[in-house]
């Protein structure tokens, strides 16, 4: 009796172990699949031009061309493009963080007629395809005489144009007990003081997550700079890359392009690893994606 029971337990646990091993094998295989293109990017970035299309493909560049990074950077005014990108990223990020926090605070802590309807409209704008409003928006900036300037990329950030982030911040505000506000008011703090010293510290994780999201958003943006920045003086990194790629009939310099791609990806990857915890919690919290 005992023996049979023991055996069935053994069977069960060995079945479990096999299941676990299988899961690990699948996960490791997927990890490899995720990494193959990355490694290929790095490997190509370090190859000489002649080696890029060697057949059969070679994983290890010989010799390793470290100066590809420097040479690629010098083919276009990338230092200028980097300054432009950082300018746009910084202005957009700061404006969004401030305006979205204020708007979310309004939605979370105040009641007024029409609030729920407005909030539903706000959420539904997430489903609006970007290209539908693209042309009239371009016309507006054109009428204002700001085509070719950075303005169309950053001024709108002041109007809290990220519905996801407003939603996320509102959730965070609503998670703070209202008694905290009331206690502060009894102690004689003004609404502004309550907001700054009581509520803001509580939503720090959300602000960090949104900081990373918006950094990534402005850094990765391509369409905006493509239609609004006509002058080479004001190109961002991504637009620089687009022209670096060359015309349809030109043969791209793949080792340089991969070196630049690596450099463009680097800041986002580093930032992601630093702020990962908040970043992933942020998405998990709201179910957002960009």
């Amino acid at each position: 009796m005992e023996n049979i029971a023991q055996r069935s337990i053994n069977l069960k646990s060995s079945k479990k172990i096999i299941g676990k091993v299988l899961i690990y094998i699948i996960l490791i295989m997927l990890t490899v699949i995720v990494f193959i293109p990355f490694l290929w990017m790095l490997s190509t970035a370090l190859k000489s031009e002649a080696d890029v299309f060697s057949w059969p493909p070679d994983w290890i560049p010989k010799p390793v061309q470290w100066n590809n990074f420097v040479d690629a950077w010098r083919t276009m005014p990338f230092t200028k493009f980097l300054q432009n990108t950082l300018f746009v990223v910084l202005l957009g990020m700061v404006a969004e963080l401030i305006s979205e926090t204020i708007v979310a605070y309004g939605f979370a802590r105040f009641d007024f007629p029409g609030k729920n309807l407005i909030f539903v409209i706000l959420l539904s704008t997430m489903m609006l395809p970007f290209h539908v409003t693209l042309i009239p928006t371009f016309v507006i900036w054109n009428k204002l005489g700001l085509i070719g300037e950075f303005d169309p990329l950053v001024l709108r950030a002041w109007t809290a144009w990220g519905p996801f982030y407003i939603f996320l911040l509102r959730q965070f505000f609503m998670g703070i007990p209202i008694e905290l506000d009331e206690a502060a008011e009894i102690d004689g703090s003004s609404p502004l003081q309550t907001f700054l010293y009581v509520l803001l510290p509580q939503i720090k994780p959300a602000l960090l997550a949104i900081g990373v999201f918006t950094f990534k958003g402005y850094w990765n943006d391509f369409l905006g700079p493509l239609i609004y920045l006509g002058n080479k003086e004001k190109y961002t990194m991504n637009i620089g890359m687009y022209f670096f790629l060359g015309g349809i009939n030109e043969a791209p310099k793949w080792n340089y392009l991969m070196a630049m791609s690596t450099l463009i990806a680097l800041p986002v990857v580093v930032l992601f690893f630093i702020a990962q915890k908040y970043f992933i919690e942020g998405i998990a919290f709201t179910g957002i994606k960009d």
Binding site: S99, I102, V103, K115, I118, T125, W158, T159
Partner: peptide
């Protein structure tokens, strides 16, 4: 508090009216 609430969200409303609602109608017209 009602007036305060609506004023706090007014930046979003302004952005919505001028850069979403109006362009949406305008692009249909165009």
């Amino acid at each position: 508090r009602q007036a305060m609430g609506l004023s706090l969200i007014s930046p979003w409303i302004i952005g919505f009216l001028s850069f979403i609602a109006f362009p949406l109608v305008n692009s249909l017209f165009l």
